[in-house]
Structures are given as C-alpha cells and as structure tokens.
Write a protein that binds this DNA or RNA. Structure first.
Lengths: 240, 240
DNA sequence: CCGAATTGTTGAACAAGTTCAAGAATCCTC
DNA sequence: GAGGATTCTTGAACTTGTTCAACAATTCGG
C-alpha cells in the first residue's frame, strides 16, 4: 500500500528523501522571494526543484505548508541574530528593543510575501495561525526566547508576573509583526517608531507592576489573562 | 462590446439585475451557513440561485467579495441592534458594553465561517482586510457608530482625545472580534468575559486621560497614534 | 414603436491546487 | 545478497475559482 503521510515528523535524518525535501523547500522559498506567493505555482516549485508535481505533495501537504516551513526558518534566523545581542546586555529595555529590531531585520527579506504568512493568522482552522498546533513548536521557541530576554536581565518582577511575562511579550511581538506586515514605509520606519516608542511604555508598566501598591491591580490583570487563556479560547486545531 | 464591470456601485435601483444579484447573495450566504465557506462552491451558489456560473461572476468579482457583502450585512444588523440600546443610556461604560455585546450577539450566526471573513485580515493585499479601501465604507460606519457611543454619553473627554476616541474604540472592537473568532467556548463565554472585564479598564483609562496631571502622557500617546497612522503604515490597496 | 446602446446571461475553457493509483528505488532483515 | 517492506516518484486526472467570447434581453432616445 502507498505510504501514509509526509515523513517530516518522524523520519530519521538523511533518509534519501531529506535532500529532496530540502530541494523543494529551497525552490519554493527562492521562488516566493522572486515572484511572490500567488505567482509561485506548485508546478514551478516542482520544476525548479527538479521533481514531479506529485512529489512536492509527498513532502508538503499543501502550498501553505511551504510557508510554515519558511516561518520556522525565519525564526531560526531570528534566534541566531538575537544571541550575540543578548550576550552582554543586562538592561531589560535594551534587551527587548534588540530582540524586536532583530525580528524586523531578519524578516525584512520576506516582507513581500509575509502577508500570506499571516493571511491565515486570523483563521482558527488554518494551521498557519500562530495559536495552532502546527505552529506550536515555533511558538514555544519564540516564547522561550522571551523567557531568556527576561531571565538574563536585571529585571526582577514578582513571581506571578514573571510566569506570564514571556507569553505576554510574545503576544506583544505578534502585535508588532502584525503592524509590520501592513507597514509599507521605507525601511519599515514606522514599525521602528512603534517599537522605539512602545517598548519604554511596556518596560515602565512592568516595573510599575512590581510596586506593592499595585499588587491588586497586577493580580487582577493576571487573573483575567489566565481566565481567558486557559481552556479553549485560543485553542484551535486540537482534536475536538 | 461586452459590459465593463459589476453594476453594484452605480446601478439605479431595480434595474433588472438587482434581483439577480440579491438571489445570488442570498444563495451564497445561506450556503455559507449551511456548509461553511470552503465547502461552498461557486457552482453550488450559482445552482441554488438558479443562474449560470458565469453570471455569478458578473455580479461578484470573486468568492471573497461575497464575504464582503456579508460583512456589510452583518454590520447593518449590528447597527439595528445597537440603536435601541443606546436610546436611553447615558453612561459611557454601559454604552460601550451594550455595543460590544450586540456585536457578538448579531455575529453569532456567522461564527462558523467568520474565520474566513478575517482570514485575509492580516493580508495587506486582500480587499477584505479591515484597513483596505474595499472595507472603507463599513469601517467608516463602524467608526461613526463609536462616535455616536461617545457623543451620546455623559463622558467629556478633552478635545484631542475625543477626536481619536472613536477610532481607538473601533480598534478595540477589532481586537475583541479577533478574540471572538478564536473563541470556541459555548455561548462565547470567554469573549463575554473579555468584554466585561476590559471595558471597565478602558473606561477608567479614558477618564484618567482627562486628568490635567496626565495631559503630557495623553498627548504623547495621541501623538504616537497619529505618527503611526498618518501616511502609509496602514494604507493598503490605495493606488501606489 | 425602432434600433442602437447598455445590461444581463450563458457555457465552454483555462489555471492552479490537490489527489491517487501505479510503479521504481531504497532500505532492512535474515 | 535475496526478498519483502518501506519510502520515493511519477503522471494523469479531478476540483474549483476565474475568464471570456458570444449571444439574449432590456432600456431608452427619437
């Protein structure tokens, strides 16, 4: 009988098809950059990868899944760019600034078709939405990065806030990226402005959150957050 | 020579095709509700409307444009539901609450395929995104509704804040809707919680914004808002 | 009421995403 | 290294959104 499904999840490294998969992904990404997403045909991808059309679908369930693969690559680049920046910096504000600017920097080459990436961002049924199972790995890694940003800093937030902070910062990052997608100014000037002006506010808020006087407010906000997140509000393609 | 384009924008009322257009829209919406967006085929729509496939495309440029039409209808229902609620209520907080809950109520029947509505929300090139030209009319009406919410209330915000408030409230509404789309809890319980708990915060913030002591902060925030909005950051399908 | 202009309608054809049965290559065990 | 299991690969076919040339109906000025 024919093979069940794409081999990506389990497959031991460097089974024959690993190279084929890579070839296809390479062809797809370079074509996305060259002509954009819509204009890139699965037939073109297959051709440029030197494989048959059906073969491309053996490795990627859909055209969108190719974008998911790009999403992961983009995150890796962000990770790589961020590491040295966080190395010698303790100041929380600067760490967040560096992380966000690095995100914009590394994403710039993909801006042209990034809309597609997030086109399904608001579709609960799309595996591309940032809350989906399919995005889980990247999402968790992105949150882990924010955890590093927090932990490596001189900031000492209360434990309850500390626990939610990475997730909150990730949400904040998603918001910035959403803005960035719509930003057509040269050099993404406006997104830079957004970052430069909101990071201080965010930082200040977090600092204030540690003030004992504001403990009730902080707890209320955190409780709301938990109430909204727990359960199924943001669940998506989990098995029903 | 063949006709140029869809007649919707100009067409005098009850030219022959008005009924055809209505039939097609009716068929589309009822099929969307019955089987969802993906499963609704343009051929099905045409069949159920009793017209040919090509005819459907005479009235609607694309399948997505049918969704746009729904978007407008949904807004009309929201308007209708909101009017009586705002009639005898002066309290700002209650006015916002009523308006948002009405939005959720009137949108409920469409929740199943609402993801599609906003699927393109993050795609700068899609006419469906809430910032696009195609959405302009509905967007402006939705903002105008928020203007009414503000003006009919006992609230007296400073002029500069007053000017931006409707737009800000609309953005807030968009955020709530985004959450709602992902909300799978029964009765959209979680979205209700979100509304009930964030509206007081928003209201408080606005009240505080009128405090002279906070004027510098208020002005700074409003300036940021203007800087980010003016120009092209959120522009989309305007002619280049 | 006539004829041209406009508007409405059709069915066939096309493009591109996706599926699938069949067969080739590779791997793995004995 | 033979043979069965697994993994790869292919090309054709199918679905569905979209386009288009041709034709029909309607409208409207005279």
């Amino acid at each position: 009988m024919p093979a069940k499904q794409s081999p990506s999840p389990d497959a031991k490294p460097s089974r024959k098809g690993e190279q084929t998969r890579a070839k296809i992904l390479e062809a797809a990404l370079s074509s996305f950059m060259e002509r954009g997403f819509e204009e890139t045909t699965m037939r073109i991808v297959a051709d440029e990868a030197g494989v048959s059309l059906g073969n491309a679908y053996y490795y990627f369930e859909s055209k969108e899944e190719l974008v998911q693969a790009f999403y992961e690559r983009s995150h890796q680049e962000h990770l790589a760019a961020t590491a040295p920046l966080l190395e010698g910096e303790r100041d929380f504000r600067k760490r967040v600034l560096a992380t966000l600017h690095a995100k914009i920097d590394t994403s710039e080459p993909y801006h042209r078709f990034s809309g597609v990436l997030f086109r399904s961002a608001a579709d609960p049924h799309s595996p591309l939405n940032p809350f989906s199972d399919a995005s889980r790995r990247v999402r968790e890694e992105a949150i882990a990065l924010m955890e590093r940003v927090v932990d490596g800093s001189s900031l000492g937030p209360p434990a309850d806030l500390r626990r939610e902070l990475p997730y909150l910062l990730w949400l904040y990052e998603m918001g910035v990226i959403l803005f960035w997608i719509f930003d057509t100014s040269r050099g993404r000037r406006r997104t830079r402005v957004l970052i430069d002006r909101t990071v201080p506010i965010v930082t200040r808020l977090i600092s204030l959150g540690g003030n004992p006087i504001l403990a009730p407010l902080r707890k209320a906000v955190l409780k709301l957050l938990r109430d909204l997140r727990d359960g199924d509000a943001l669940a998506t393609d989990e098995p029903r």
